[in-house]
């Protein structure tokens, strides 16, 4: 990546500096700080709870520090406590194979994200850049799928996967997601609409095929939205719960959300294993955070960069 600096932003910045309205900027920073605080502070409570002992949480409800500091919750998440120890700590007696769940979650989220984003990009290209009869009708239909209440689809899809003999397999888990997500198509179409046709038309005059245009012009130019979309899709898939719960009951394909679901309240009127739940939340968010830390910079850069080869 050669030109990493976004011209737009740098210009705005420099013009800003010339004007004597620095208070405006500091005001803006205050707003950003508030937004960040609101977003992040609850996570302190998550951490504080994760480091607490369950039996002491309620008695120290207003204490800002961990109540009875203890790493037991994290041990539970990694399946390092015996069932008896876990129950004594206010956890459940369920066995946890953390690393297997992690592997399954990574596979599930990665496969569905990569595949859905790619196929959705293809479809979005057809909806935004190609001219064909019935295009808007078909697009409206696709868009409408976003409005189908999930209650409708879960059961028939479950039956379908079952009839294909794919229950408790990774393929069965990913299948409904790999072809597209309506959101991804919609999202990319909106971006493709905004792209200039000039280069595309020029390429066409040069005799380039649609396939080449798609791969060599459209995709590279949409790097930023594609990366954003991939990240958001990945997070969404990472947190997917109900479908994996239905289809991936088997230990071998159980994903993190389902495996760590045992920290929620297991019986009516019972309280959740709060510290375990919060530790699980932190630990399961970590891989996505790492992902963001690694690719976040790339996303920033590619967003500012809008070049063609």
């Amino acid at each position: 990546m050669t030109t990493t600096h976004a011209p737009a932003t740098s210009r705005v910045k420099s013009t800003r500096r010339r004007r004597p309205i620095n208070w405006r900027k500091s005001g803006a920073w205050v707003l950003v700080a508030i937004a960040v605080a609101v977003s992040v502070l609850p996570f302190y409570w998550v951490l504080r709870t994760a480091l607490s002992t369950n039996g002491s949480l309620a008695t120290n409800a207003s204490n800002l520090l961990p109540a009875d500091f203890n790493l037991g919750a994290f041990k539970r998440v990694f399946g390092l406590q015996s069932p008896e120890e876990a129950i004594a700590d206010g956890g459940s007696g369920a066995q946890i194979d953390f690393w297997i769940y992690l592997r399954n979650s990574v596979l599930f989220a990665a496969i569905t994200t990569a595949s859905a984003v790619f196929f959705s990009a293809m479809a979005a290209y057809a909806f935004a850049r190609l001219r064909w009869r019935g295009r808007n009708v078909v697009f409206s239909l696709f868009l409408a799928t976003m409005m189908v209440p999930p209650i409708f689809t879960a059961l028939p899809n479950f039956l379908l996967i079952k009839n294909m003999g794919l229950l408790n397999s990774m393929l069965g888990l990913v299948l409904p997601y790999i072809f597209m997500t309506p959101f991804a198509i919609f999202f990319l179409r909106q971006f493709f609409l905004n792209m200039s046709r000039e280069v595309e038309e020029a390429a066409k005059l040069d005799g380039a095929s649609h396939l080449r245009i798609f791969f060599q012009i459209i995709l590279p130019n949409a790097a930023a939205p594609l990366a954003t979309l991939a990240l958001l899709t990945f997070i969404g898939q990472w947190n997917e719960y109900f479908w994996p719960l239905l289809v991936g009951q088997d230990e071998s394909v159980r994903v993190l959300t389902v495996g760590l679901g045992v920290f929620k309240s297991q019986s009516p009127q019972g309280a959740p294993d709060w510290s375990g739940l919060m530790a699980a939340t932190l630990v399961s968010a970590l891989p996505v955070l790492i992902l963001f830390a690694i690719f976040g910079k790339k996303i920033v850069n590619s967003i500012g960069f809008s070049g063609i080869k």
Binding site: F119, V148, P156, L160, F179, M180, P182
Partner: peptide
Amino acid sequence: FIAPAMIGFVLFYLV
């Protein structure tokens, strides 16, 4: 271009 998405659409949404 829309064939893969169409499969998903029909199987998992339309039906």
